[in-house]
Computed example of a mutant assay.
Amino acid sequence: MRHSVLVLQITLLSLLAGCATLPEKAIITKKHVDRAIEIEETFAHNSAEFAPAGESWFEIKHGSSNVLIVAPHATRPTREGKLRFPDGGTGSLAVMLAELTDSTVIYTTYASPSDPNYYDDNDFKRALAQLIETEQPRLVLDIHASHWYRPYDVDFGTMNGASIRGNRWIVTSLMSYLQQEGMSNFSMDYFAATAHQTVTKFVTAMGTPCIQLEINSNYTGHQYDSETVRPQMFAQALQGLVRFVEYVKQNK
């Protein structure tokens, strides 16, 4: 009996050894997270302030990859005449993702006079349209944050499948890369990006695949300070997204 158990144990260990793959080296460093915290402090400082006269309320940084990154709620948006809350941490996440993957990113820098995820008739959407026309990205990542009470790590908004335009690999690959970083609870179309004039709806109408990422605020850091930020979780989300974008870049 003991011999049979021993043989079974050896067999199972052999199978596991044959199937297991070695982990990849981490790519996100402490310096990356420290920089993200510094960037977010600027967003927080300007979040409720409208841009000074002559200055834009959003910024574009150009890259060379085939992925375009959008953070329309990095600062507080104006919706129906009132300033709403920002998606804390999404600005720094988007900027760091763009820097690490050499991707173009567009994001708000001051309080937006017109919510880019609620209205189409604003300068942000016009700039976004021009970016899509000139750069012709393969994919647009529309980055948002969800309340930390939400049961998921990430909700994928796809307009019930319409925004990914038949490219199921976008969702499955993104899930796989995020799972490698310890994110395991996913949702699809809890926020489908179909209500109002969302960025994802706007991009989809232009013929470009787009996915709205509603990332739980536990991963983005609602406020960047020693009491509330969770640096490891931010690093995990950033690393998963970086690896996904690199995958998209390499598989044209």
Rank of each mutant, 00 (worst) to 15 (best):
M1D: 12
T11C: 15
L15I: 15
A17E: 11
A17H: 11
G18Q: 13
C19L: 15
C19K: 12
E24T: 15
K25T: 14
I27G: 09
V33I: 15
V33L: 05
F43L: 08
F43N: 07
N46F: 13
S47K: 08
A48W: 12
F50Y: 15
A53V: 10
E59D: 12
H62Q: 11
G63A: 06
I69Q: 04
V70M: 03
P72V: 06
T78C: 11
E80C: 03
R84S: 11
R84P: 00
R84F: 04
F85K: 12
D87Y: 06
G88S: 07
G91L: 02
G91M: 00
G91F: 00
L100G: 02
L100N: 01
P113D: 10
K125W: 02
Q130M: 10
E133P: 00
E133G: 14
R138P: 01
R138Q: 14
P151H: 11
D155F: 08
N160Q: 14
G166H: 07
M175V: 13
S184F: 09
F186S: 05
D189Y: 06
Y190D: 14
F191A: 14
A193Y: 03
V199G: 04
V199R: 03
T200W: 05
T200H: 04
K201M: 11
A205F: 08
C210R: 03
L213K: 01
G221C: 09
Q236F: 02
A237I: 09
G240W: 04
G240R: 01
V242I: 15
F244R: 01
E246H: 11
Y247M: 15
N251D: 12
N251E: 10
